[in-house]
């Protein structure tokens, strides 16, 4: 399960919309070991492509060192798909090098709505997980849970805990 603040999700979606039709990518850092995404860091897509993304290697070194200095880790690694669903592609799976991270995908293929899904990718195995969007600054118990379907062809919502 990925628990993430609504304001961070909105910032990620805004980044994905801004870079559309190119893929957008970035990181949400959080305190090491907390599994809590706290600091949104949009990254350049060095590939500037509609079908590929790649962190700029020098920007990545700077950001990774900064996280290290702050005792943070990349809790979420996100990117957008601009013409396909929010499910990891074969290249996403073969490149995935952070087994502890939540791989968040946003699809911007529909101009009116976004598909947001989260995955663990460990040793080439993809496991989808629910995304729990947390409303900060409001009642901490007022949480909306989205349970996304496992089928790569459809997205099922189940809202609970309202």
């Amino acid at each position: 399960m990925l628990s993430i603040d609504r304001s961070i999700v909105e910032a990620i979606v805004a980044h994905a919309r801004r870079d559309h039709p190119d893929e957008a990518c970035g990181v949400v850092a959080g305190p090491a070991g907390s599994d809590t995404p706290a600091r949104h860091i949009p990254m350049d897509n060095a590939a500037r492509s509609m079908t590929f993304y790649e962190f700029d290697s020098m920007e990545q070194l700077r950001v990774w060192r900064e996280m290290d200095d702050r005792d943070e880790e990349p809790v979420v690694i996100y990117h957008s798909h601009t013409a396909t669903e929010a499910y990891p592609s074969r290249t996403d799976i073969s490149f995935a090098g952070e087994p502890g991270a939540h791989y968040l995908l946003v699809s911007t293929r529909d101009p009116d709505s976004e598909e947001i899904r989260s995955f663990r990718i460990v040793d080439g195995v993809v496991t989808e997980e629910p995304v729990r969007i947390v409303e900060a600054g409001v009642d901490p118990h007022a949480v909306q849970s989205y349970m996304f379907g496992q089928s790569p062809a459809t997205v099922d919502y189940e809202c609970s805990g309202r």
Binding site: T51, F52, S57, M58
Partner: peptide, 27 residues
């Protein structure tokens, strides 16, 4: 960055350090 600078075979100096990072990329 060793890849962009082609440094694989260039000489290291005393006190140099190496950092390995998984590239973050995909489709």
């Amino acid at each position: 960055d060793v890849r962009t600078s082609g440094m694989l075979d260039s000489r290291l100096r005393d006190g140099d350090s190496l950092t390995i990072l998984p590239a973050v990329a995909g489709g």
